[in-house]
């Protein structure tokens, strides 16, 4: 408790709450269309590519973020293209890209004398890894994601539900797809610092899936995802402060899992109740 009362003395905690909350919020919003279009694995693929890029950057003594962001953006375009192409076995291709990127990253780190601690931190994230510039970067990107998502909400829905219809009736869908690939890539890299490579994709997938258990309109799912994701991120970081040694990323995922179980149970019960009503 002591640490929370004196939170001002622990700037890294404030950073964690800001970056964690914002990236959870943005990834949950970007995650709704990705999950609904069955592109969930893209987030996972992106974070693995990010891990590779950061490890290589570290080995070459470059700033990890400046290398990871452009590399992951390129990967995002590539993965979206692969997923949209029915001729390629998309999930297999994404798995190959993910594992190759991790392998290259691990090799680079170990061959250049990097420590296992670095690898560990990138894999599982760390509360302490955030710098002041990361915080500003994440605020700027999150503001962009939020504004664009609200502005283009109607187009996001139309394109998620039916890309062909939107294209056939004259929408230029290419630009929106590119924009969403770009924003997802940047947000994943930001989220990686805190959540780690292995866990960041949960921020994309969990809130949308959880909301879909209970909410039945797109608007309901979007709003609920944002709220749940924020609460779970705050709860997870809080838990990792209170329980000595608990990792923030893992705590956030576990809180998300609990939320999912509660929503799934509630959804099942209310559906059964509805079913009875229809029958009688």
């Amino acid at each position: 408790m002591h640490i929370l009362l004196n939170i001002a003395d622990y700037p890294f905690l404030i950073y964690a709450f800001v970056v964690g909350g914002l990236s959870a919020l943005c990834l949950s919003l970007l995650g709704v269309p990705l999950v609904l279009k069955r592109y969930s694995m893209i987030g996972d693929g992106l974070s693995h590519v990010g891990f590779g890029a950061m490890s290589v950057a570290l080995a070459l003594n470059l700033a990890p973020m400046y290398v990871a962001v452009p590399v992951v953006i390129v990967a995002a375009f590539l993965l979206m293209r692969i997923s949209g192409n029915s001729k390629i076995n998309a999930d297999a291709a994404i798995a190959l890209i993910s594992s190759s990127a991790v392998a290259i990253g691990v090799l680079c780190t170990s061959l250049t004398g990097g420590s296992n601690i670095d690898i560990y931190n990138y894999m599982f994230g760390s509360l302490l890894s955030l710098s002041r510039s990361d915080v500003w970067f994440s605020i700027a990107i999150s503001a962009a994601v939020l504004v664009l998502f609200v502005f283009f909400y109607n187009r996001v829905f139309a394109m998620t539900f039916d890309e062909d219809f939107a294209a056939a009736t004259g929408s230029k869908i290419g630009i929106y797809k590119s924009l969403s690939a770009l924003l997802t890539a940047v947000t994943v890299v930001i989220g990686m610092n805190l959540m780690g490579t292995l866990l960041v994709s949960s921020l994309i997938i969990f809130p949308a899936l959880t909301s879909m258990r209970v909410f039945r309109s797109f608007r309901g799912v979007v709003i609920c995802s944002a709220v749940i994701s924020l609460l779970c991120a705050a709860g997870g970081i809080l838990a990792s402060c209170l329980v000595a040694g608990a990792s923030a990323g893992a705590s956030i995922v576990v809180v998300n899992l609990l939320a999912f179980i509660i929503f799934a149970a509630f959804g099942a019960v209310s559906r059964r109740a509805c079913g009875h009503k229809h029958r009688t």
Binding site: L36, N154, F157, F161, A166, A168, T169, R216, F218, R219
Partner: peptide, 28 residues
Amino acid sequence: LGYLPQQTQVQKGFPASVYEVVLPGCLN
């Protein structure tokens, strides 16, 4: 133009109200 595509697998389980689905008819 208006277009009725054949339904995709993704759409069958989509969380959206009838009104939300019809409204993008005004997208153009």
